[in-house]
């Protein structure tokens, strides 16, 4: 979508049509730069990853300890203070360190899910696009089936059948990303499979395996890379949704779970909004950063919307 957005910035179009003298070389330049917004987003994502990774080694509070205050602040939850930057929940646990620990599961799930989706969906999509025929038809039909469920419904159904561990939840969300990733991979492969360099490779007797690995894969990987960031955002949100419903990793701290704790009962949100809102902000900025960076990258790499 955003490539068109950039294009129209130069020319007003309501009354347009009359002329389109803008031959848009300047827009081309806008499109070909990632911009400071992109790097800001990448910066945030990297910060989150580093903090999540280092959480146990940083001198932050134990996420599971209860910091009951004896100096007359009364009963928890306590609001944000110098001691507890994000405040505490009603068991007096530190929200800041819980949010950082939550990043561990949320980011891992997001990463593993999209990695799995890229591996399985990408492989199936490339093979379907390359070999066509009955194989393509079956794979495409499987994609249609996967897409004929609302993804959250499918996720809930699958989580009901398994032990909910970090790995299984990641894989369930990975299964959800197979169809969208696979369709993109198939579309990109179709786009390249008839190009001269592929035909040429075939004529000099290259094996299918070699053509796919050497000729197709490098071209198909590029649009998938941009999709990976968007897909990670989707997976993190989906995990959040599952956790919020109590269907994510059992006994683990995740952002969705923290948000759910902050909004349960009838008075928690009213009396101590910080419990829910700090994790919401962190989750929101992370998802926003992934979305924005992914979108910029897609524009930059010029992935066609139609291929998605």
């Amino acid at each position: 979508m955003s490539d068109t957005d950039n294009l129209v910035h130069a020319v007003d179009t309501t009354d347009g049509g009359a002329t389109n003298p803008a031959d848009s070389p300047a827009d081309e330049a806008v499109k070909r730069r990632l911009g400071w917004g992109f790097w800001l987003c990448i910066g945030w994502i990297v910060l989150m990853i580093v903090l999540a990774f280092l959480a146990p080694y940083l001198s932050i509070k134990d996420p599971n300890a209860n910091f009951i205050d004896m100096s007359g602040k009364g009963r928890p939850p306590y609001g944000p203070s110098m001691d507890h930057w994000f405040g505490t929940d009603k068991d007096a646990r530190d929200i800041f360190s819980r949010t950082l620990y939550g990043a561990r599961i949320s980011l891992t799930v997001g990463f593993v899910a999209i990695a799995f989706g890229l591996l399985v969906g990408g492989t199936l999509g490339i093979l379907a696009g390359y070999f066509r025929g009955w194989f393509d038809r079956i794979i495409s039909f499987v994609f249609v089936i996967l897409l004929s469920f609302p993804s959250l419904v499918l996720a809930i159904m699958l989580t009901s059948l398994i032990e909910r561990s970090l790995l299984t939840i990641s894989l369930v969300l990975g299964v959800l990303s197979i169809a969208p990733v696979g369709r993109l991979a198939r579309a990109s492969t179709l786009q390249y499979a008839d190009r001269e360099f592929v035909t040429a490779a075939r004529q000099i007797g290259a094996t299918n395996r070699r053509i796919i690995m050497r000729e197709l894969l490098p071209n198909v990987v590029i649009p998938m890379g941009a999709l990976a960031l968007l897909g990670m955002a989707v997976a993190i949100v989906a995990e959040g949704g599952l956790a919020f419903l109590g269907l994510s990793v059992e006994k683990g701290i995740t952002w969705g779970f923290l948000i759910q704790l902050g909004s349960e009962g009838s008075t928690t949100l009213q009396k101590s909004p910080w419990i829910a809102f700090f994790p919401i902000f962190v989750l929101f900025f992370t998802v926003l950063a992934l979305n924005f960076a992914g979108d910029r990258l897609r524009t930059y790499l010029d992935v066609k919307e139609s291929a998605l």
Binding site: G241, F244, G256, I259, G262, S263, A276, I280, F284, V287
Partner: peptide, 13 residues
């Protein structure tokens, strides 16, 4: 970018 459960909580609040 706003997850719907987060939006629900914000709007409700």
């Amino acid at each position: 970018a706003m997850p719907n459960f987060a939006l629900a909580i914000i709007l409700k609040f």
